[in-house]
């Protein structure tokens, strides 16, 4: 079943369109990776899906419901969570408080969910009273993902989860992404690390200059010579 799709999305900032007629489909439980050179509009696509940017044209559909133009605080209630690339934690709050803020809209007892997130990232449990501003980049990324998972979303939008991390941490974060996906969470991952992103993807999209260039199964894109030459660095 297609859980989330965009059709003919044209969007951008004042006066300048970054995306032109972009379409993308996510089936439930699937990892979709979006790759492409800098400035291809990958992050803009996530912001548009999540309602931070309003598309000039086209629409976003989540579980047969048109969510185009809804504000982020409405969209998060529908079951989509978003992890921005930068500024994705509350630095002066503790780890535990960051996770609590992820569950802000829940009025039920979410202690079980909190346990699950700590089980996924045990290092966060050990330091739950520590302020997030004092953590390393990899741990911050875990807090950011943990915050987004508190609502038990059906779709998780990840913007460059590996950006700025040391190689050993990159593979750790990618492992965590696979673990999260194994619990049934569908994802759209935007990545500079195209090879790593396509390896774990069920489906991949290549964007360039704000337009769809190619889309195929993850391994098919990895095997595609043109994709390899243009986007995977040879």
């Amino acid at each position: 079943m297609i859980i989330l799709k965009t059709e003919d999305i044209t969007a951008g900032y004042t006066e300048i369109d970054i995306l032109h007629d972009v379409h993308i489909r996510v089936r439930s439980g699937e990892i979709v990776s979006v790759i492409g050179p800098n400035g291809a509009g990958k992050s803009t696509l996530l912001k548009t899906i999540f309602g931070i940017l309003k598309p000039r044209n086209g629409n976003v559909t989540f579980r047969h419901e048109d969510i185009t133009g809804l504000k982020p605080d409405r969209i998060v209630r529908k079951g989509i969570s978003y992890v921005p690339q930068v500024d994705n934690v509350f630095p002066s709050l503790t780890i535990q408080e960051n996770l609590e803020m992820g569950a802000f809209i829940r009025n039920d007892d979410y202690s079980q969910r909190l346990d699950e997130v700590y089980d996924l990232f045990p290092v966060l449990r050990e330091r739950k009273k520590q302020k997030v501003g004092q953590l390393s980049g990899g741990q911050r990324q875990m807090v950011a993902m943990g915050r987004a998972l508190m609502l038990d979303p059906q779709v998780l939008l990840l913007d460059e989860p590996s950006a700025g991390l040391a190689p050993v941490l990159v593979s750790m974060i990618f492992e965590k992404i696979k673990e999260i996906n194994a619990t049934g969470v569908a994802m759209i991952i935007v990545e500079q690390n195209a090879r790593g992103a396509l390896k774990m993807a069920h489906h991949g999209y290549v964007l360039a200059m704000g337009r769809n260039v190619l889309d195929d199964k993850g391994e098919a894109l990895l095997a595609n010579e043109e994709v390899a030459r243009l986007y995977l660095g040879g």
Partner: peptide
Amino acid sequence: TKMGKAMRATADNMELALISGID
């Protein structure tokens, strides 16, 4: 309190507060 923590969170990063569903 939940509201107090949300106040500190909003002071830290208003956009992320909005993304988290905080009004």
